[in-house]
């Protein structure tokens, strides 16, 4: 497993808790909790794929630029999802927060 934490700028989200996805081959789960700084999004990644940190950083930075994710902590358990699936799940969970608010 490879684990790392990113701290990225994002516009403030309407803080809420959420979960999406399932940890299974080629898939991942994303758990959303509330964090502290309203203009920052902290993301804890735990992935079974070694050596793809650059790709993760690009996909995650893109997602929190497209959606308001400030003030949130995203925790990711990944079992080898492709960047497209990761991006889809991020859209799914962040859109669910936008719809709930």
């Amino acid at each position: 497993m490879e684990t790392f934490t990113l701290d990225l700028p994002s516009t403030p989200a309407n803080g809420a808790r959420a979960l999406c996805g399932v940890v299974s081959s080629g898939n991942l789960e994303i758990l959303v909790d509330t964090g502290h700084a309203p203009d920052r999004c902290r993301i804890d990644v735990s992935t079974s794929a070694q050596g793809f940190r650059d790709t993760w950083e690009a996909v995650l930075a893109d997602a929190v630029a497209r959606h308001p994710a400030g003030g949130l902590v995203l925790s990711i358990n990944d079992a080898g999802a492709t960047p497209a699936v990761v991006s889809l799940r991020l859209d799914q969970v962040l859109e669910s927060l936008e719809q709930a608010s």
């Binding site: 992935t47 079974s48 925790s75």
Partner: peptide, 23 residues
């Protein structure tokens, strides 16, 4: 629930992915 993060200590020792609700 998943926010309590009751994950498997055994999978972690084996360096395998865990789930926040342990499935």
């Amino acid at each position: 629930g998943p926010h309590e993060r009751l994950t498997s200590p055994h999978l972690a020792v084996l360096d395998l992915p865990v789930a926040f609700d342990d499935g």
